[in-house]
Nucleic acid binder design. Structure first.
Lengths: 155, 155
DNA sequence: GTGTATGCAAATTCTTTGCATGGAA
DNA sequence: TTCCATGCAAAGAATTTGCATACAC
């Protein structure tokens, strides 16, 4: 257990976000300027093999990097908005069912499962509708006078 | 619609396997020696964007390439044996459920969904038991005399 | 004929390897 | 004190880009 490994695991575990190797390296460098990018890759590989972290690609929404998270949480699917990049996590019982059925059906012993879903989040669906309107009709008319407030539903 | 695009889509669609960019390129080259690797990458990118093919990584079981399949089949999960590399496909209703729940829960509009599961297939579980026995006890005694037949269950 | 797709070479991005040194147990 | 992890430099795999030519429509 070295200084570097401890730091890296803490960062992956502590960060709310899904870090990729490069972000993890940058964060680590801030706390320990002597750390090397190669150590990050080597440590990630080890943590993966030990089953301590999971590797995601979040549908390669931005580039071909991978993202990492600790395996401490309950199993969940990742839901990525293809427009704004926001990532939600879905915990639910169909996931468990799916695993059970696969184990039963193939006599498989599942070690790891990954579900990644891409699409458009509620906000971006609204935006898309607005953008399409602009393309069709030109810029929207100015909003009616009065205090601004968040649009609730477009349809 | 160029000669190359037609060929590449046919190959992805026709091949039973999950091809990666390099295998696809090699197959294509056999049929049309003038084709270029770059064209393969460009075409795959386009087919992905059009929603005609899906990109998988099969848990990066061997290297960091991606694998491709057409979207003509019903939605399914990929089940990869981490030992022998065999890939099974699972069609089942928990997948549909999962998508529905995610759409309902987040108000999400799902465009693409990918489930990849890794573990050990029935055959490899048996092998692992044998291998562990060898590590513990040294090479197994020769099998009892008589006609060879497939082992059915080890446990 | 016009514009987009292709081929080629070179560049970029992400990740791994070889080897000498440093640090944890 | 021993051995494995680290850092550094360099290599390697997978993929993308720039630019001139070729081909589909």
């Amino acid at each position: 257990m070295t200084r570097q490994r401890k730091l890296l695991f803490e960062l992956i575990d502590g960060s709310g976000a899904h870090l990729n190797a490069e972000s993890l390296y940058r964060l680590a460098k801030q706390r320990d300027s002597r750390i090397n990018r190669v150590t990050v890759y080597r440590t990630l590989k080890m943590l993966k093999q030990e089953g301590l972290v999971d590797e995601l690609d979040l549908l390669h929404h931005e580039g071909d990097q991978h993202y990492y998270e600790t395996r401490l949480k309950r199993e969940h699917a990742h839901v990525v908005c293809l427009r704004c990049g926001r990532v939600e996590e879905f915990f639910g019982e169909p996931l468990k069912r799916l695993k059970q059925q696969i184990e039963a059906h193939f006599g498989f012993q599942i070690m790891i499962a990954r579900t990644e879903v891409g699409g458009y989040c509620a906000d971006c669906q609204r935006t898309a509708v607005r953008e399409a309107a602009v393309l069709r009709n030109g810029p929207a008319p100015p909003p009616p006078a009065g205090k601004e407030h968040k649009t609730r539903k477009t349809s």
